[in-house]
Design a protein around this nucleic acid. Sequence first.
DNA 1: CCTGCACCCATTGACGCCCATAAAACACCA
DNA 2: TGGTGTTTTATGGGCGTCAATGGGTGCAGG
Lengths: 159, 159
Amino acid sequence: MGSEKGMALFLATFVNKVDKKGRVSVPATFRATLAPQTFAGVVAFRSFTAPCVEAGGIDWMERLSAGTDDLAAFSAEQDELTSLIFADSRQLPFDPEGRIILPEDLMAHAGITEAAAFVGKGKTFQIWEPAAAAAVQEELRQRAMKNRPTLALPKGGPA
Amino acid sequence: MGSEKGMALFLATFVNKVDKKGRVSVPATFRATLAPQTFAGVVAFRSFTAPCVEAGGIDWMERLSAGTDDLAAFSAEQDELTSLIFADSRQLPFDPEGRIILPEDLMAHAGITEAAAFVGKGKTFQIWEPAAAAAVQEELRQRAMKNRPTLALPKGGPA
DNA sequence: CCTGCACCCATTGACGCCCATAAAACACCA
DNA sequence: TGGTGTTTTATGGGCGTCAATGGGTGCAGG
């Protein structure tokens, strides 16, 4: 099993079924990258940029908290972000088989009914209605073929 | 073997068969350059510049992750890049014989059916349908003989 | 007593591991 | 230098294991 040290990335897209109880299996590879965390489960909240659920491990929340701490206390911006993120987020624990229960409002926000797409985003991931995820992905891909986006990389490594 | 100080590179082109299970042997020399990585396998995604599969080691992905971490969380730019890079990429682990399983959609995108060409690109490599790879190679070679491309090198090294 | 929700068990189908064979690169020796 | 034996690589197939899924059951709280 996964006792690697360096890698802790969420990669690829997996589509799993949602059963009548609202349970979904979190992909095994995602569970593996979540394994070292202190909370055995997923933290999730409704995205405010897309019809999907933002998700990650508990340490990611702590990182976000560190980010909002840098904003001025009582500023409108700080108030807004902390509400959007922390007030809306929940901890979804794994059951013994590695599934989580998707709350009603999260499913409604993403339009999820009978299947959910887990979309890897590196240090975090998103949960989508499968068809919507595919559509957005395809559109991004089309755009990329024209605009060839670039990314500045730290030097020294491979590629 | 294989613990040289200089970074190992992916060189040359190898054509291997794809069996009924979708398995392909990764060339032994490529496995050797991937050996020091934390994940025993390759990371691959559909190229958005050519009908082929882009591939490399996991540390290459981690480097890309470090790059996207410098972008603001929830920014459009960060969202697009992480989707493009991570959502479409897959971890393909080696089996005990050094083979990987090429997923259906990757094979479809590259037009691969019964054989795959592993094309070294230095710090990464590509996987092509053999005939397509040969055609593109030949065309590039023809063009190079006319245009005579040049390459500036960092100074201080050998040659 | 009824409704959840958390744990347990059963099924299945894919994938990972093992073997066995074959072909090729290499080393060694006459 | 050519032949021969050995090691590594490539390939094919069978089988066990685990992940994904569905359903049942017991405990807790209202």
